Simulated scan of single mutants.
Amino acid sequence: MRMADAATEFTYTTELTGAQQTDETRYVATHHLEGNLPGGTVDLRYRVTLRGDLIECLVIEP
Rank of each mutant, 00 (worst) to 15 (best):
L54A: 13
D53I: 00
P38Q: 08
Y12Q: 07
L58A: 06
E24N: 06
L58C: 04
T17I: 15
E56C: 01
E61A: 11
Q20V: 14
Q21D: 03
V42I: 14
M1V: 09
H31V: 11
T11F: 07
T14Y: 06
Q20S: 15
M1H: 07
Y46P: 05
E24V: 04
L54H: 01
V28R: 10
A6G: 01
A4N: 09
Y46L: 12
T13A: 06
T41P: 09
E9T: 12
D23K: 07
L44I: 14
L50N: 03
R47N: 12
D5P: 00
D43E: 15
T17F: 01
M1Y: 02
C57A: 14
A19Q: 12
Y27E: 10
A29W: 06
Y46F: 13
I55M: 08
A7L: 05
T17W: 04
M1R: 04
E9I: 00
A4G: 06
G35Q: 10
E34K: 11
Y12L: 14
L50I: 05
E9F: 02
D5F: 00
L37K: 04
R45Y: 01
Y12N: 03
Q21F: 03
Y46C: 07
D23A: 08
T13H: 02
H32V: 13
T14S: 15
Y27Q: 12
P62K: 09
T30Q: 13
V28K: 05
T49A: 11
L54P: 00
R26S: 15
E61C: 07
L44Y: 10
M1G: 12
T17Q: 10
L54S: 09
E9N: 06
A19Y: 10
L16T: 03
P62A: 11
A29G: 07
Q20W: 03
D53E: 12
F10S: 08
Y12S: 13
T30G: 04
L54D: 12
L44M: 13
I60D: 00
V59S: 01
E24H: 02
M3Q: 08
E9L: 08
V42L: 10
G52N: 08
G40I: 07
R26T: 15
V42G: 03
T8D: 13
G52V: 04
